[in-house]
Amino acid sequence: MRGFRLNRKQKILRNLLVCLLLAAATYAALGFPPYTVRGMLERTERRYLLSDLEPLLVKRERIDYSNKLLDTHETYLLVKTENTYIFTKYTRHFLAVKPGYGDKLKMGRDFLCAAQGGCLYLAGKFPDAASAIMQVTAEKTERYCDKDRNLIRTEQGPARTFTYQGERLGEELFEFRYMEEDGFPWALSDLPESEYHLGQAAYEWYSTYVEGSGGTGVHHADLPVTVTLYDGKGEVLDTLDFTISNYELFL
């Protein structure tokens, strides 16, 4: 007796069904990655117990890592709900999509300032603010570690305040550009310190040297930030004081 044989159309249908099942299994195995901004917002809502997230800023970047076969795509999201602001990113490499480093990037109530791609973004409810000026102060603070004696010596250098005029990107968003998008802060050659931009200062002025070994690193520092908001007549509306990590400014 001959067994049941499928004709070509039936085989195509069977194969398509198998493809669908395998694709669904792959999607599940990858953790149901979000590929769209809407999907990323929903994932962010669930990760942080928030609802009705509204995007204020969506930025996409494509990175070609030399050790990876395919490009990496990063999507940065600055979102808000009521008085909570979140800055997060999703990284897609081939089919896998992962949320930002350390599970989150930044979260704030009432307002949030985050750095990305050479810009500082300030999100908050400033309906009457027509313009804004941001001042970030960096102070050269070099550390020298003596491993043998377990000592850390700190040398303070001059402080410098960087001032930036804000550009309104939306009702609740100002952008302050402090360096060109590709203005990578390392590889500074012979640039005098007085000509450093904020990204370079955040990287170069917070060095840690391990004496004897020649090892160096960049230590963490919170740089004081003051934002002054002005109304249409140029009068001061409000002043915000907070800090920003030097790592954010150059990474």
């Binding site: 085989k11 195509i12 194969n15 398509l16 198998v18 493809c19 395998l22 694709a23 299994a25 792959t26 195995a29 990858l30 089919l95 896998a96």
Partner: peptide, 16 residues
């Protein structure tokens, strides 16, 4: 469709 099945298997195994 045959290649599709094969590729889907590879993707599934790669996704661990």
């Amino acid at each position: 469709s045959k290649w599709g099945v094969l590729i889907c298997w590879v993707f599934l195994l790669l996704s661990d």
